[in-house]
């Protein structure tokens, strides 16, 4: 794969560190990942947790997520996802399982089943490479109102409907802002759009 098609250069460092962890159980590489990602995951869980997560459980989940990064690093493939994407999905799934445990008052851990659901395609499309490469840049170009709804859906645990109510907008407006934003980020949903 040519250099210019890899996820954007800033990401190379984190991908390389993840590979170090995968191949050599390299604790120094892991410590660097921890320093970068643990505060981001804390911000994420805080933002998305709302009332359902208190301070102690946020850090507990950050810890659980970082330990998962250590354990699952061998599954990471830099050709398919930026390190931040991989760590994001892993934490998102942990949180879903955590919420589910809370609701069911179950002590036992649920099996790692989401990872398989998200299992990526064996073939990495050129399109995904292009998207990964340009994503951080195109995110900065988004109009504020489009980025706002995207942030709410992804980082605040809100459905399109919730966002519409919060911003006092028609549901259709929220849907079209999300759709426009995703189009600009080159997310291809053509097979499900009418």
């Amino acid at each position: 794969m040519s250099e210019e098609l890899s996820p954007s250069p800033g990401h190379e460092k984190w991908s390389a560190l993840l590979e170090q962890v995968a191949l050599h159980r390299d604790k120094r590489a892991f410590a660097e990942l921890f320093e970068h990602f643990a505060p981001l995951l804390k911000a994420y869980l805080f933002s998305i947790g709302g009332r359902s997560l208190n301070d102690a459980s946020v850090e507990e989940l950050v810890q659980e997520a970082m330990l998962s990064v250590w354990r699952k690093a061998p599954l990471y493939d830099r050709k398919k996802a930026a390190a931040s994407t991989w760590i994001y999905t892993l934490t998102r799934n942990l949180r879903i399982d955590w919420l589910r445990r809370q609701n069911r008052q179950e002590a036992e851990e649920l099996p790692d089943e989401w990872e398989d659901a998200d299992e990526h395609e064996p073939v990495v499309s050129l399109h995904l490479h292009k998207l990964n490469h340009e994503l951080n840049h195109s995110l900065k170009q988004l109009p504020i109102d489009q980025k706002e709804v995207l942030m709410k859906v992804y980082m605040e645990d809100k459905s399109h409907q919730d966002v519409a109510m919060e911003l006092n907008l028609p549901l259709g407006t929220v849907k079209s802002r999300v759709r426009l934003a995703l189009q600009k980020l080159k997310v291809n949903l053509s097979h499900v759009e009418l």
Partner: peptide
């Protein structure tokens, strides 16, 4: 799956 892969990447970038 490919669509979700791209949507996951958006999550990673927003993180």
């Amino acid at each position: 799956r490919q669509a979700v892969q791209q949507l996951d990447a958006v999550g990673g970038a927003l993180l």
